[in-house]
Amino acid sequence: MATYRRFDAANRVLHGFLMLSFLGLSATGLPLLFGTSRWAAALAGLLGGIEFAGRLHRLSATVLMLVFLVHLTRVLKQLLLDRDLGVLWGPYSMIPQPRDVVQMVGHFKWFLGLGDRPRFGRYTYWEKFDYWAVFWGMGIIGFSGLLLWFPTVFATLMPGWFFNIALLVHGEEALLAVVFIFTVHFFNTHMRPEKFPMDPVIFTGRLTEHELRDERPDEYDQLAANGGLAAIEVGPSPSWVVPSARIFAAAVVSAGFVVVILIILTLVQGRG
């Protein structure tokens, strides 16, 4: 069976750094939010104490901001230098479009047995949500984080109560991001019954013909119609990639699952 390219090497590497820095930020930030629980103190200890954890947090934040900047540069280059308006609209754009709303409603109908499954294309509405959630998170968590990292610099521009807001939204938004990624994102990509236990596409960059045709029929039909399939056909991944990706993803998904359980338990018991 033919294999097709979905993500290029640069995007896979960027996602890799995004993932590692996100895990680093989560592990070093959560102990502060949940400092009354023993698991948080133990996690801070595992990371070499809270002082070292703080350094890891800033290092991870720097990596994540670089990933974000590289991505923005790539998108802007595609738009401005390559004059590719497909960035802004159409099936290859991440911009939410009317068809996303229609497909979301259709997807809910399918869940309930009230209709056929929508014919998804290259980017589905939940993938776009994940994508923009990162933008929102970078804006809110990234900016508030910079404020807290360089308070005396930003205090020349903004009032002191702003830092109280920054501290609150940094923590709450981070909690949202961590729990969302460790539950919804992991379910949508790996844990849902069609994909369980994992979808290696973000590591291999490859889809089988079967996957492309069944899960993204709209993209497949267009590519088949305009002869684009041949251009994205690639050979199989090197043999070590899928097993390594499985082990790595299993570890991260399990760790994330444990963290979510601990967070929920702590929240139920009362955080203060």
């Binding site: 005396t152 610099v153 205090a155 009032p159 002191g160 109280n164």
Partner: peptide
């Protein structure tokens, strides 16, 4: 501790309660 702190900075509430 914060050698460059200014008046704005000092308005931060270290005992804020959401």
């Amino acid at each position: 501790c914060h050698a460059d702190a200014n008046d704005n900075f000092a308005q931060y509430d270290p005992h804020a309660d959401r």
